[in-house]
Computed example of a mutant assay.
Amino acid sequence: MSHTAHIPSHRKPRQRASKSALRAGVAGGVLSTIAVAGAAGPAQAEPVTQTIEMPTITTGLSTAVAASAQATQQVALDLETRAYEDAAAESAAKKAKKAQAEAVRKAEAKKKAEAKAKAEAEAAERAERASRTAERTTLSAPAGSSSGNSSSASAPSSSSSTATGSAGAIVAFAKAQVGDAYVSGGTGPNAWDCSGLVQAAYRTVGIDLPRVSQSQSTAGTPVSLDNLQPGDILYWGGAGSAYHVAIYVGGGEFVGAQNSSTGTVQRSMDYDRPTGAVRVL
């Protein structure tokens, strides 16, 4: 056997004749078409007139824009509200500060006015006392020279210092009010003016006196200051025009609602000697 008989052949098998003919025909047709196109000359390019429409996305965009505008408007409204609140708070603070300053000023003015009124009242009291003392001195000089007895102007005797009955009740009531405040127009129970105290003292025994000092100074029988009895009404000024009254309590002393500085006190007649007296009992 030959050595080459078992070596396989690597050559491709021959193609069938039909396939070769088909391929030759196709190739020939293509080449013919190219040849014809070349003979016809270069082709004229036609302009592109087709319009491409892009999709519209305005729906989502408008929603976003509206939301942004609303947010911006809300921020502006918040800023405006905050500015208004800040302005209101600042205005309120200024008003409060001004009101506080005004209150302090009024309190200081009131304090000064009260101090001034008190000083004027004390000065007026001193002036009135000095005037009454000078007036009594002038009026008592002729009486002393005609009598020739200086003891006639002395205080009432001690025999009239003990009060009983209605006079004792009046004196006891008057003494019980010593220390109470003086208030113009006061009628008790813890603050009095001069005629209010006298009226209340007499009311304890069922006697209703007039309310004011002018009328009380003529409410009874006039008596001499040298012959006083407990319960008699003392007055300062003229009878019927008196500006102050008090109650004689015996022992040369009286109880009266004097003024806002002293209040209701028990004093010696030598402290502020009255002009006259009346007896009601």
Results as ranks from 00 to 15, higher is better:
residue 144 G to E: 12
residue 126 R to A: 11
residue 177 Q to H: 09
residue 214 Q to E: 03
residue 188 G to Q: 04
residue 187 T to E: 05
residue 134 A to L: 15
residue 209 L to R: 00
residue 142 P to C: 08
residue 130 A to D: 13
residue 154 S to P: 03
residue 163 A to W: 06
residue 197 L to S: 01
residue 182 Y to S: 03
residue 124 A to N: 09
residue 165 G to L: 15
residue 145 S to I: 12
residue 124 A to W: 08
residue 175 K to I: 07
residue 195 S to K: 00
residue 176 A to D: 13
residue 133 T to F: 12
residue 128 E to P: 02
residue 197 L to F: 07
residue 209 L to N: 00
residue 169 A to R: 15
residue 170 I to G: 01
residue 203 R to S: 07
residue 207 I to A: 00
residue 204 T to D: 03
residue 107 A to Q: 11
residue 193 D to K: 03
residue 140 S to E: 15
residue 202 Y to I: 02
residue 152 S to E: 15
residue 184 S to I: 11
residue 115 A to I: 04
residue 215 S to Y: 00
residue 194 C to A: 07
residue 205 V to H: 03
residue 174 A to P: 02
residue 120 E to C: 09
residue 154 S to A: 15
residue 145 S to L: 13
residue 164 T to W: 13
residue 149 N to W: 12
residue 128 E to A: 08
residue 210 P to A: 10
residue 181 A to R: 07
residue 178 V to E: 02
residue 139 L to W: 08
residue 156 P to R: 11
residue 173 F to G: 11
residue 215 S to C: 05
residue 164 T to Q: 14
residue 202 Y to R: 02
residue 172 A to C: 14
residue 207 I to S: 02
residue 133 T to W: 12
residue 175 K to E: 08
residue 169 A to S: 13
residue 107 A to K: 12
residue 141 A to F: 12
residue 116 K to S: 08
residue 140 S to M: 14
residue 160 S to R: 14
residue 164 T to Y: 14
residue 107 A to W: 08
residue 168 G to M: 07
residue 166 S to Q: 15
residue 215 S to A: 14
residue 191 A to E: 11
residue 207 I to W: 01
residue 123 A to L: 09
residue 114 E to I: 04
residue 195 S to I: 05
residue 136 R to T: 08
residue 127 A to Y: 07
residue 146 S to W: 10
residue 164 T to M: 13
residue 182 Y to P: 03
residue 136 R to D: 09
residue 195 S to Q: 06
residue 156 P to V: 12
residue 127 A to G: 10
residue 212 V to E: 00
residue 215 S to V: 02
residue 184 S to K: 15
residue 214 Q to I: 00
residue 166 S to L: 15
residue 117 A to I: 02
residue 187 T to D: 02
residue 185 G to Y: 07
residue 114 E to D: 13
residue 175 K to A: 06
residue 149 N to H: 11
residue 166 S to D: 13
residue 198 V to I: 04
residue 181 A to V: 08
residue 130 A to Y: 11
residue 143 A to R: 09
residue 124 A to Y: 02
residue 175 K to N: 05
residue 127 A to V: 13
residue 123 A to M: 05
residue 215 S to H: 05
residue 211 R to D: 06
residue 150 S to R: 07
residue 163 A to D: 04
residue 112 K to W: 03
